[in-house]
């Protein structure tokens, strides 16, 4: 039978975890395919998740492709489909199709230091790279993470970040001061300037709200990072995931297919349409 690119595979939710509760709730899901479908992907690729009756949403895969047992997604509750996902429980079935997009060129980064810079839910797509880099640690130089959220309650992967501190420097921040907060207070781009990652043999990978990305890139440039040393991901509204439905393009690039990962050298050539 011909492969139908629009037909999702059924996947069972095997684990859920509340990362953030409240108005900007974030939940992490682990899924397993109901029929044992193969799903090989690269770090930074996305999957189109279905809640039948509500529709589809494109979500980045936050688990490492080296872990084959499950797929992990961390999802901000923001609209119709994501709200329905948040209402789902262990054992419920969703649809998954993909993987989509180009992914991070990790092989090209061998031997280099990697500095991850994330904001809010933007840690989710980075998480796949962080986990993979740890599993392939010998292939890379020094690893470090600069991550921030609006408040301490908005920080995702709290337990995992605590564990991560044993394996790489982790610099956390929140936007405004809180009584028990001992780390940096201020926006993520400011923390980047504060922590001054060295551009020498380093790749900076950033993901977060568009305004954060914009200033992180500006500050990385101030720290003498070259355009080719900066990688980010772009998000646009998507429906098909395969470069046909026509809405996620920036210039002649379809983010779903040709993105979502761009080096700043490539992205700055495209029109500002995201």
């Amino acid at each position: 039978m011909e492969l139908n690119v629009y037909t999702p595979q059924l996947a069972k939710i095997v684990q859920t975890k509340d990362e953030v509760v409240g108005a900007r709730a974030i939940k992490t899901f682990r899924t397993e395919f109901a029929n044992g479908a193969r799903f090989d992907y690269r770090c930074g690729q996305c999957a189109m998740l279905s809640v039948f009756g509500k529709g589809e949403a494109m979500i980045s895969i936050s688990s490492s492709p080296l872990i084959k047992d499950y797929l992990q997604f961390s999802i901000l509750r923001t609209g119709r489909v994501t709200a329905a996902l948040h209402d789902m429980e262990v054992g419920d079935l969703i649809g998954v199709r993909g993987p989509y997009g180009n992914g991070f060129p990790m092989d090209a980064w061998q031997g280099k230091n990697l500095v991850f810079i994330g904001g809010g839910i933007g840690l989710a797509p980075l998480w796949s790279v962080v986990q993979t880099a740890l599993l392939r640690k010998s292939e890379f130089g020094a690893l470090s993470l600069i991550y921030g959220a609006r408040t301490s309650k908005d920080i995702v992967f709290k337990d995992e970040l605590a564990d991560l501190k044993g394996q790489m420097p982790v610099h956390l921040s929140i936007d405004v001061a809180e009584p028990d907060w001992k780390e940096f207070v201020g926006f993520v781009p400011t923390n980047v300037l504060e922590k001054k990652p060295s551009p020498a043999n380093t790749i900076a990978i950033t993901c977060g709200p568009p305004i954060m990305i914009k200033f992180v890139i500006k500050n990385l440039k101030d720290l003498k990072f070259e355009d080719e040393q900066i990688y980010t991901t772009v998000e646009n509204k998507m429906k098909c995931g395969i470069g046909k439905c026509g809405r996620c393009n920036i210039g002649f690039h379809y983010v779903c297919k040709d993105g979502p990962v761009y080096s700043w050298a490539d992205l700055k050539k495209l029109p500002q349409e995201y």
Binding site: Y6, G53, K54, G55, K239, C245, G246
Partner: peptide, 25 residues
């Protein structure tokens, strides 16, 4: 022109029954 939308059309919410359709957009 060929741009399109994909959406779920629900015939019955409980028990759930419906179709996923592509429409022009």
């Amino acid at each position: 022109c060929h741009c399109f939308d994909i959406g779920d059309e629900v015939e019955s919410p409980s028990p759930l029954k419906g179709q996923r359709v592509r429409t022009w957009d």
